[in-house]
Every structure is written in structure tokens, then in C-alpha cells.
Design a binder for these strands. Structure first.
Lengths: 202, 202, 202, 202
DNA sequence: GATGAATGAGGCTTCATTCAT
DNA sequence: TATGAATGAAGCCTCATTCAT
């Protein structure tokens, strides 16, 4: 029955959202499964009907959120052809996600790194897909003679992501009053990378 | 007695080194204090004579290693005046540290992020000092008219560090055969940032 | 409607048979109600329409199987008058049941003992009826002057049952190739008890 | 230090004794580790310094108690040469153990059987040693022409042990007033087996 | 009657930390 | 100063049972 399927999906979604909040507030290890259950309005055991264990819940958040983020990124870049503008839009999009989904961003950036599984065993395919978008922009720019061809797309990809990620983390961690302008930061990072990757003007 | 002081320092050092190895191998949460004690050749309780608790041990590793790293960085840059070359040397130095101290780098990069204390309460002064070196290079470059003055030194600082850190992490996590050339990566990242931060050539 | 009653009985029977198999494979505590339900082809909740709880299911198996076993025993002994031969037939019948109903025997012998309820609260009337058959044989033999009258029928009853039961358990637990001849064992046990209980030949 | 070793042994012994009592009272599954710890006067965690887990505790009780029982059996039989008298003494000894160590006997007989590990994986070497004593008596009796040579020592061994065990279990389970005379039972069982195993008087 | 998603109590075990020696 | 046996808090997860449909 469609009704039951919908209710089931709802419950799963409620657990995910509750987990995002609790993980963001307390951190993965400090978060108690029973707190997540309480916030989701379900019994502790119910969580285990939808997720194998606490870690699977964390990983599922990652997969789920990344799906949305990835789709959003592709949409944001869909109408843009110029590699230079695509880089700029990538940076803007990345920071807009962080700004508009603080809890999710906090979990994705901070808590996920804490999972040994994630870092040492789990292959974050979804993250690679996300990054591959940037590598592809680089390659396209190189093909068009806009970006220098001596740059390794993988190196620039990781460097670019690292730059965005670190700034996002600092923004997330920074407490209110001192919080810097994340939008301005996006422009600057994009600008540095664009100029840095461009072929020398002759 | 100097002898006693030295012996004490030795023991502390042995615990630190043991902790670096164990944290690198198992991760902070999975590492057991008794394993560290065993590897250091001391009793469990002895660790608590030198460190307040397990987390203090992690933080102490950070402080201690960062002191060395920071001193090394300053020495590496001591004889270089040109801001452009200082940026390049910074990148080279950062990666050389990662390459030559795998375990320490792994702990610093991976495990430290996992400590809620570290990320949410602890102010990593030593890290700020390290980064401040780069911010200062930027300011000096701006003052000399080499780097664009519209760039926020804090933004470039985090972006640069993020780029180095992410690449270092990937290098550390990457398993043997596919391991990319970390030295070449250093040159590329430095190059991208230098060009990206430079004033437009007229 | 007779049809409905039959269907009901069928479902109950299917649950019983499924439970016998699952209990035999996994043991009572390791067996999950949902596994039994799956094997029986019913929903978990359905089991609770037929049995009060998991333990009641175990006890019901016992009652049900013992009814059949008891009827079979009586039939096997029906045409035999000589107490000596009745003892022999009892042993043969007991082992034939074990041999031909491995799963049921395994549950009856192994798993039932694990139920505290069974051992400390539950009065296994059916088992007593089964044993009483032997006690009666003893008494009859004593009355006829075949068995020694100084033997306590309760003691011989438990001793005989214990001997059969232990051998059956060993046979059930023994893995294939080394499995001893259960039929030969039946003859030997019967023989020892018959000679042991007989009045001295003068 | 001998002192420390003694204290350690004492603590282990206290845990064993507490576990025997609690297992006997509540059964293995119903017994809580914290109850055992409380009764032993130690912290919960202390138990895990001496035993791998709850099941290991149960198995250790078995091993430990059987060592004592086995030594006692050997001593009880040491001065007896006649196989017939050895059988009688075996039965007497077995029941004396049950009578004098009710809790331990209850655990050994009832709770041990409940452990799947014990029945399906664990090889109770100590029990086999105990039984082997009886098998050896049988063989010796056969060699001397006292017991019939057509009897399989393994069959009589299990039958004898089953008879003793079942009677012991009934005695343990039987509540006070109706409790039968266990010593008289010992004589009867021994008597039945001795006559049952003897060569025909000519 | 039948379903099966949801419940939630309950307990084993780990391991950082302490402290008597 | 060093030891290491002892502590005990704390939480994930299972699974028998219920009940709304």
C-alpha cells in the first residue's frame, strides 16, 4: 500500500533528521541512540529496523545528503558552460549548502571524519562523484585552452575541495559574532583558483 | 637531579611516541590506554602521572609535535625573503613533514579532528601560530605590492591550509601502489596559490 | 465449519513442526520467534494466536510429541505380557523414536532441560506417564516374582530412563561417522537392567 | 609476591562460589553478572579480569569442580581392587558429591546442559575422564572374567552415568518432604548394574 | 483470524581512571 | 615515582510481545 510505504519513508526520514541534529549537537560518539530515537519520536528499537547500527546511520546520512547535494550541484551548473564560471558557481554552491544546512554540514564535515570506518574502510563514492565534477571542469578547461595543461586535475580537485572544506569548517565552528562573511570567502577562493589555474595571459 | 629530570623526560617522550603509534594504528577512540602503556613499557597508571587523561595525551602530542614543526617551518623560511618563494617553501615544508612523519601526521590530521574537545572547545593555538605564518606572508606580499590587496589574509590562510591538509590526508590514506607524487603536488598547489594571489601583471 | 477447524489445526501443526526444526538447529534461547514464523510461513504475531508465548510453544511441543510417543509405547507393549520382554520392548521403542525423529528427540532431550520453567516449575505429567509405564512393569514383575521385590520401582524407573536418555543424547550429539549402533545399545541396556532386576536364580 | 597471588586466587574463588550460588538459584540465563559480582563482593568489571565472559565463568566452574570431583573419585577408589566393589563405591561417591554440594551439583547437572556451547561445541574432557574411570572398571572386570565380555564398555558407561545423573537430578529437583533416600538409591543402582553386568553364575 | 511494524525493557561488557601498596 | 588490580558507569542492541489495521 502506498500509504504504508509513505509512512515508512516518513519514519526513516524523521530518524535521519533527528540523527543529523543530535550528531551535530553532541558529536557521533557522544550522541546516544536513545536521544536520536526520542527526538525522532520513535522507540529505540525502531531505529534498528531502518539502520543496521549507529554507524550505518551516520553513513546513511552521508549517502542521503550527498545525493541531494550532488543533484543540487549538477542543477546549479547545468546552464553554465564557461569553465571559469563553473568553478565560481561550484564554490558558491558549496558554501550555500553549508550555510543553509548547518547541522548537516557539521555532521558531514566534522563527525564523519571521526569514523574510522569512513576514513579507513568506507569508500565515499558519493564524495568522489562530487569531486569528480570539479576534476571534469578542470579537464574541460584544459581542453579549451583556458586552464593550464600541466596541472594534474586530481591535485587541483583535492586542493580546491580542501580549501572549500576548511573554510566551511571554520565557518561552522566559528561562534556567532566573529563569523566571517562566507559568501565573500567563496568569491575569493574561487578567484584565487581561477587565476591560479588559468593559462598565462600573453 | 639532572639525571632524574632526564629520566622523567625520557619516560614522557616514550609515552608520547607510543601514543602516536597506537593512535595512528587504531584511531583515538579505538586505542586503549593500556596498549599505549604496554608499547611505552610503563604501567597504565604511570601515564596519568604525566598526562591528565587520554585526551590530554592527544592534545599534548599535538602541542609537542607542533612545536617542532613550527620551529622547523621558521627555520625553513628563515633565509627566504621573497613572499612568493616563502609560499613555495611553506608547501614544500608541509608535505615533507607529512612524508617523513607518517604516524604523527596521521594523528594530527585524522585523529585530532575527531576530538570534540579539540574542535569545539580547545583553541589550537599552535595551529594558529603555524597558519599565522602564512597570513603574515600574505600581508607582507600585499605590503610589497606582490599579492593582491583585496584578498583577506584569513581566507587565503585557511584555503591554503585546507588545500595542503586535504592533499596530505589523501596521500596518507592512499595505499601504496597508487600513491601520487607528493612533491609534485606541493609544487602545483604552491603554484596555483601564488598565481592566484599575485597582482595582475600589466 | 469443519473446514476452518482443519485449517486452524494445520496452521498450528505447521508452527509446531517449524519450531521443532528451529529449536533443534539453534537451541531454544538462540531460536528467534520470527525464524519459526518464517519457516512456518506465517506472520510473527500469528504464533501468539496459537501459543501464549515462546515457552508455551516449547511446552506444547513436549505435550504434543509425548502424546504420540506415549500412544506408540502403549501400542508397542500392548501384545506383550512377559515383564522381561516388556522391558526389552520399552528400550527398543525408546531408541526407535529417537532414531526416527531426530529433531523432535533433540528438542525433547536437550532443549527442554534448559527451560527453567520446565525443570523447576512445570510438572511434566506426560513424562511421568511415560515413566510410570516402566514403574508398572517393574511392579508387575515383582508381583509375579520375576523381579526382586526389594527394588524401589521409582529408583529403577529413573535409573532406566536415565540410562536410555543419556545414551540417546550421546547418539544425537555424536556426529556421523563415529555414531554407534543405537539398536545394539538398546539390547545391551535392556539386558543389563533385566538381569539386574531379576530375582536370583536358585 | 605470594601474598598477592593468594589474594588473587581468593578473589577468583569467591567469584566462582558466588556464581555457583547464583546460577543454582536463578539459572544461567536468568542470573545477572552484576548479581554474581555483588554476592562475591567485587565490582562487575572485576569478573572480567578472571573470566572471559559469563559463559566462560560457567565453563570454568565445570572444569574446576570436576577437577575436585575427579580427584575425590580416584581417591575413593584407590584402595579398592574388586571391580564389583569399585562400581558400588563409584555410585556412592557420585551421590555423596551431589548430596554434599547441592548448588554445585545443580549447576553442573542443570545449567551446564543449557549451554549450547557446552552441548554442541565444548568437549567436556573432564566429564569424559570421569566416565572413563567407569569404562576402565568395566574392562578390568571383563578381563578378570567377572563382567560379561559381550558388553560394550562405552554403552555401560553412558547407561550407568545416565542412571546416576537422572536420579541425582530428581533428588536435586525434588522438594524437601518427598525427598527419597539418595543413599539407598545409590545401593540399588549399583546393585542393578553389578548383577546386570556379571557373568552368569554357573 | 492474520499481519508485521513498532515497541522498549534489560544486561553484558568495555575501558578510562583511581589508589593502595 | 611507579605499579596494575580493581573499579563501575554507561550504552548499544536484541528480540519477545503487542496491537492497529
Amino acid at each position: 500500500m502506498a500509504e504504508a510505504a509513505r509512512r515508512r519513508a516518513d519514519k526513516r526520514e524523521r530518524i535521519i533528521e533527528a540523527a543529523v541534529d543530535v550528531f551535530a549537537e553532541r558529536g557521533f560518539h557522544q550522541a546516544r541512540v536513545s536521544d536520536i530515537a526520542k527526538r525522532a519520536g520513535v522507540a529505540d528499537g525502531t531505529i534498528y529496523l531502518y539502520f543496521k547500527n549507529k554507524e550505518d546511520l551516520l553513513l546513511s546520512i552521508f549517502e542521503e545528503k550527498m545525493d541531494v547535494v550532488l543533484a543540487g550541484l549538477r542543477e546549479a551548473l547545468a546552464s553554465i558552460d564557461d569553465p571559469v564560471e563553473r568553478v565560481r558557481s561550484f564554490a558558491r554552491y558549496h558554501f550555500s549548502q553549508v550555510r543553509d544546512n548547518r547541522s548537516a554540514a557539521e555532521v558531514l564535515q566534522v563527525e564523519l571524519r571521526l569514523s574510522n570506518k569512513f576514513l579507513k574502510e568506507y569508500r565515499p563514492e558519493k564524495l568522489w562523484e562530487y569531486l569528480e565534477v570539479f576534476a571534469e571542469i578542470t579537464r574541460e578547461g584544459q581542453a579549451r585552452g583556458i586552464f593550464r595543461s600541466d596541472l594534474d586535475p586530481f591535485v587541483t580537485m583535492w586542493a580546491f575541495f580542501g580549501a572549500l572544506d576548511e573554510l566551511a569548517m571554520q565557518w561552522v565552528l566559528s561562534r556567532r559574532p566573529n563569523r566571517f562573511e562566507i559568501d565573500a570567502a567563496a568569491e575569493q577562493v574561487a578567484d584565487v583558483f581561477i587565476r591560479g589555474m588559468r593559462v598565462d595571459p600573453t
